Computed example of a mutant assay.
Amino acid sequence: MAVILGPNRYGKAETRVVRVVRDGGVHHIKDVNVSSALSGDMDEAHLSGDNTAILPTDTQKNTAYAFARKYGVDQIEDFALLLARHYVSSQPAVHHARVEIEEYFWDRIPVQGPSGERHSFVRSGREVRTCVVHHDRDGTTTVLSGLKDLVVLNSTGSEFHGFAVDEYTTLQPVTDRILATEVSAAWRHVSDGSPFGKSYSEVRRCLLEAFAETHSLSLQQTLYAMGKRVLETRGEICEVRLAMPNKHHFPVDLTPFGLDNPDEVFYAADRPYGLIEGAVLDDDAPAARFAWE
């Protein structure tokens, strides 16, 4: 039996960077989590312990901090591109860089400080903006933008019936139910020159509008409608991938208390839950060269 080294990469995970921009008495915050992973001509680190080709993960952490100071952090995709290109261009052994960034949102508290300054914020919701950038030595770049933890709910306008039944099926068909989910979405840009900020806002709007406007016969149908709306509306996007758990809401039986329940009182089940995943893509778009993960 021959033993060989397979695909490998290494990097620094979850470098938390908070960048404060002081515009006089008005402050602005960017709160991001940066993870980098490098691969290339570095097999000897595994095979013989020779670290000549290894840029320390601590250096990758420091680079994220230094670049935040030197260049600022505006759109997370642009910051990820900056880091990925730096690693590939500055290190001969690095042939491919993957940079993933999460952004956490803060809302300004509309109250001035004691001297009239505006420097107070409150963390907004659970939604997280995401991106993954892949950059190769040959110049090939893929930009994946996205979001996660976007919780949405339709209190009506959802059905589920006509499904397959076997000896273990107990679920009853319904023609009116609550449809709730926590959207994780990623979308692939046609090029690395998109106006990422506007694109993010518009894709998010498309996802929410399609969710609200679709009379759903299944969460699968809603997923496809959301991805389709993005592709039909935003020409800079060629593929959308969605993961949507079905956050079940079940009517509570109030008959033991002499009360009816005309679909007004529910309990939200934590687990188990259905998990619906799928990709919607432009059939004319080039195939993604790099893995989505």
Score class of each variant (00 low, 15 high):
residue 2 A to P: 12
residue 3 V to C: 08
residue 9 R to W: 11
residue 9 R to A: 12
residue 9 R to S: 11
residue 10 Y to C: 09
residue 15 T to D: 14
residue 18 V to M: 09
residue 18 V to W: 00
residue 18 V to L: 12
residue 19 R to I: 09
residue 20 V to E: 15
residue 22 R to Q: 11
residue 23 D to A: 06
residue 27 H to Q: 09
residue 29 I to W: 00
residue 31 D to H: 00
residue 32 V to E: 03
residue 37 A to D: 14
residue 40 G to W: 07
residue 53 A to I: 09
residue 54 I to Y: 11
residue 55 L to W: 14
residue 67 F to T: 07
residue 72 G to L: 04
residue 72 G to D: 02
residue 73 V to T: 05
residue 76 I to V: 09
residue 81 L to W: 00
residue 82 L to S: 07
residue 84 A to Q: 06
residue 85 R to H: 10
residue 86 H to F: 15
residue 88 V to R: 05
residue 97 A to T: 09
residue 104 Y to F: 05
residue 104 Y to S: 02
residue 111 V to Y: 06
residue 112 Q to K: 13
residue 118 R to G: 08
residue 121 F to I: 03
residue 123 R to D: 01
residue 127 E to K: 14
residue 135 H to C: 05
residue 137 R to A: 13
residue 148 K to T: 07
residue 151 V to S: 12
residue 157 G to Y: 06
residue 162 G to W: 14
residue 163 F to Y: 15
residue 163 F to P: 02
residue 168 Y to V: 02
residue 171 L to E: 06
residue 174 V to M: 13
residue 177 R to K: 10
residue 182 E to W: 01
residue 189 H to K: 01
residue 193 G to H: 05
residue 193 G to E: 06
residue 196 F to L: 06
residue 197 G to H: 09
residue 198 K to R: 15
residue 199 S to F: 05
residue 203 V to W: 04
residue 204 R to L: 14
residue 207 L to I: 05
residue 209 E to T: 11
residue 210 A to Q: 00
residue 210 A to K: 00
residue 212 A to N: 11
residue 213 E to T: 13
residue 214 T to D: 02
residue 216 S to Q: 03
residue 221 Q to P: 07
residue 226 M to P: 00
residue 227 G to H: 02
residue 229 R to S: 06
residue 232 E to L: 14
residue 233 T to N: 02
residue 233 T to A: 05
residue 240 V to P: 01
residue 241 R to Y: 11
residue 243 A to Y: 07
residue 244 M to G: 02
residue 250 F to P: 07
residue 255 T to F: 04
residue 258 G to V: 03
residue 262 P to S: 08
residue 263 D to C: 09
residue 264 E to Y: 11
residue 267 Y to F: 15
residue 267 Y to R: 07
residue 273 Y to S: 15
residue 273 Y to Q: 14
residue 280 V to E: 03
residue 280 V to Y: 00
residue 281 L to D: 08
residue 283 D to N: 12
residue 287 A to V: 13
residue 292 W to C: 05
